[in-house]
């Protein structure tokens, strides 16, 4: 009996918690090593913003995903795992520029984003629509119909709507600047409150 208890004492010492600072330092070292070994297929970090916490993810090609909290960050990371690669680390370094530009945008010190983008999560017509959205200038809005005309498919209004709804790079690719023809908001991936926040932020600049 006493032998058994002693075992447990030893085992509890062996499995004692490891200092979180040590693990954080080792994690940082792994981020750098994975980056130099070309193994960091997706790097991500989470930033705070006036529209809630945003997940930013980048491949070596560029920013690949901006996700609102309501999209469920864990689910978004799982989708990136399935669609791009499971070699994903929380590695803030690669997102430094994106985080800085977003911060400037939310402080009204920036009206366009100057970031390399990776559009590999979108295909076909949606990708075409999303690639043209940055031509809608800061503080301006367009209707779904106008965007359909912009991409040369004036009858594809609904398809433009779903292209906006599935934009993997909200805020940076400004699908929030697309409204219904009657001027009402339409939908938004981050919720209508976020869309309103972004539009009024740009309007008062």
């Amino acid at each position: 009996m006493s032998d058994h208890r002693s075992d447990e004492d030893v085992l509890s010492l062996l499995s004692a918690p490891v200092d979180p600072e040590t693990l954080a330092r080792l994690h940082g070292r792994l981020e750098r090593a994975a980056q130099s070994a070309d193994l960091l297929d997706v790097a991500y970090r989470i930033v705070d913003s006036p529209v809630g916490s945003l997940l930013l993810a980048a491949t070596p090609q560029g920013l690949v995903r901006v996700a609102y909290q309501c999209e469920d960050h864990d689910r978004v990371l799982q989708t990136l795992t399935d669609k791009i690669s499971p070699r994903i680390l929380r590695a803030p370094g690669r997102l430094d520029q994106a985080a800085r530009e977003l911060e400037e945008y939310f402080e009204r010190r920036r009206t366009t984003f100057d970031l390399p983008l990776d559009h590999s999560l979108s295909h076909g017509f949606r990708k075409l629509v999303q690639s043209r959205l940055p031509t809608i200038e800061y503080g301006q809005t367009r209707s779904y119909g106008q965007v359909a005309e912009l991409v040369g498919s004036p009858r594809a209004v609904r398809a433009v709507g779903s292209a906006c709804a599935t934009n993997p790079l909200p805020v940076v690719v400004p699908c929030h600047r697309v409204l219904r023809t009657d001027g009402t908001l339409g939908g938004y991936v981050g919720g209508l409150e976020a869309k309103t926040t972004l539009l009024s932020l740009e309007a008062t600049a």
Binding site: L14, V18, T22, Q78, D82, L89
Partner: peptide, 23 residues
């Protein structure tokens, strides 16, 4: 379904460090 590698590091990082320390 395979998890993001980040989860592998968070879930098993401490155990692997204990193993390395024991060796």
């Amino acid at each position: 379904m395979k998890e993001p590698f980040e989860n592998v590091v968070t879930q098993h990082g401490a155990t692997v460090l204990r193993v390395c320390r024991a060796l």
